[in-house]
Write a protein that binds this DNA or RNA. Structure first.
Length: 116
DNA sequence: GGTGTGACAACAA
DNA sequence: TTTGTTGCCACAC
């Protein structure tokens, strides 16, 4: 297992922990995954989703300002907003009010589940 | 090993 | 709020 593979695994696993009805930013995920400052790596990791078993709620990952990472007209963005709204997350004009929906992880629980 | 790239972040207008 | 610039760092060629 190379370090890069491990990084991706950590990212995916962290994303899986985002509770329903919440969202997180790329930077936040990178941080929690033990990769501070590597938000772009998170983007790459999500672009290479292993789409094997474990459903990964990639749509709960937004930019730091709450904006969806895709172009507003893209199908991806529409799919994402749809999925979010299914979880009672309000998406307006391609963005989410982070103040209301941003995930506030419980660190102790996080450490327990991730145990890096 | 150099170069370009990326589902980004932070900051400035 | 939106757009542009810069910094960032691992990865793929």
């Amino acid at each position: 297992m190379t370090k890069s593979e491990q990084s991706y695994q950590q990212i995916w696993q962290t994303v899986r922990l985002i509770p329903q009805g919440c969202v997180a930013s790329y930077g936040q995920i990178a941080d929690l995954a033990g990769l501070p400052g590597r938000a772009r790596l998170v983007g790459k990791a999500l672009g290479k989703l292993p789409d094997n078993q474990q459903p990964i709620p990639w749509y709960r990952v937004l930019r730091s300002n709450g904006q969806i990472a895709f172009d507003k007209h893209s199908e991806q963005a529409k799919t994402q907003t749809g999925l979010l709204q299914q979880e009672n997350v309000v998406v307006l004009n391609n963005r989410v009010k982070l103040k209301q929906f941003q995930w506030q992880p419980d660190l102790s629980e996080l450490l327990f589940k991730l145990s890096f």
